[in-house]
Design a protein around this nucleic acid. Structure first.
Lengths: 213, 213
DNA sequence: ACCTGAACACCGTTCAAGT
DNA sequence: ACCTGAACACCGTTCAAGT
């Protein structure tokens, strides 16, 4: 706290400082609590100062997504099997969203298309094509995996605020549901794991059915 | 729009009218434009009046989700194969979100656990269990499908506001990506279709691998 | 170049008051 | 019982002004 500064002098504020503070604030208090004014207060600066580093709030949110994505995404290892690439992508994204829960909702509502993400996407697509998938199928596959990871994080975030479906809430009228929950509530980790395993098994079946090599 | 009414008399406003107007407003102008004050104006009523029908804005949003879900979800046909149940659920949800784009973001952030949704969930789980899936696997499956549908709608909504990844944006540095997009941009429909097909293929593989019958 | 302060048009929600 | 109006504590953003 408390970057000391003479009134009316340069704060020496950089865009990177703004973004880091924004991510920290969103992670700590939730995205819905992220406001230009609160962020400014955090940085010991007037709200309007932020507009010098960011076009507007939209732009701030876009930048947060790029920031977290850049921090999370790693190029696929070379050489890699396609399952590794897919699972690796999912793991990267999962780790990023786990470390930055404040970014989850932002990830869900915008796509960060930057040179870096395009380059990583291209590399991943190449591996998948070499494994026998048609380029378009490979792209679909990446979308499906990304969607699954973000989707499960969103659902998880929703359940934090709201009671989830668990055994006590279910009662005796729903025996199969009760049986499903007998071993405890279904966690995000297990749901994500299940979805990814299932997707990869499905991909495999489709590839054998008829990829374009 | 003028529901005419004498000042200070009963407006005769019902909760159902409030919800219908809220859904209409969110679908027309987007969720981010949905405010208590604007909704009140739409209903020719003072903002505070709404608090008589709804606890607060959170409560309004919860009610919207329940409303749209109730309108969309149908019980699975009996008798039905498990693929039908899964695809049917996805189709119901997809139709509901297509008709009510204003509800997409709300669906992503909360889970509407009502007697009706629990009952439909139980019916679906029963079909899946009878098809050879363990109850917990069946629940995972439903979650995965719901997540996929909501996820693709979210991504689609994001792309409406923001340029998607398409061929012109990609250029020559990304040949595989360019090839993937050569037949036009990847639509939400095709992504959703791909994800569901893949999930079902994966489920099938898992069932044969070792369900608990 | 970088930062500020007042101002504008909004929010959700409380509370006491009206009919 | 149902609805209102003023008030409070917030928003994002523009604009002219300060150093």
């Amino acid at each position: 706290m408390g970057r000391s500064r003479v009134q009316g002098k340069h704060a020496g504020l950089t865009r990177d400082q703004v973004l880091r503070a924004a991510v920290r604030l969103a992670d700590r208090d939730g995205v819905e609590a992220l406001s230009m004014r609160k962020l400014a207060r955090e940085l010991d600066v007037e709200a309007m100062t932020l507009y010098h580093h960011v076009r507007n709030k939209q732009g701030l949110e876009d930048a947060i997504v790029e920031y977290v994505l850049a921090e999370s995404l790693r190029p696929p290892p070379e050489p890699a099997g396609w399952q590794e690439v897919v699972a690796g992508h999912a793991a990267d994204l999962h780790r990023g969203l786990t470390q930055h829960p404040g970014a989850v909702l932002l990830f869900a509502t915008r796509t960060a298309v930057t040179p870096r993400t395009l380059a990583i996407l291209e590399q991943s697509l190449r591996v998948l094509r070499d494994a026998g998938f048609a380029p378009r199928t490979a792209l679909h596959l990446i979308y499906a995996v990304a969607g699954a990871v973000v989707g499960q994080h969103l659902a998880y975030a929703g359940e934090q605020a709201q009671p989830a479906v668990d055994a006590p809430a279910v009662g005796d009228d729903h025996p199969v549901l009760a049986a499903a929950l007998a071993d405890g509530p279904v966690t995000m980790e297990s749901r994500l794991d299940f979805t990814l395993t299932t997707l990869i098994a499905g991909f495999e079946a489709l590839r054998q059915g008829g990829g374009s090599r």
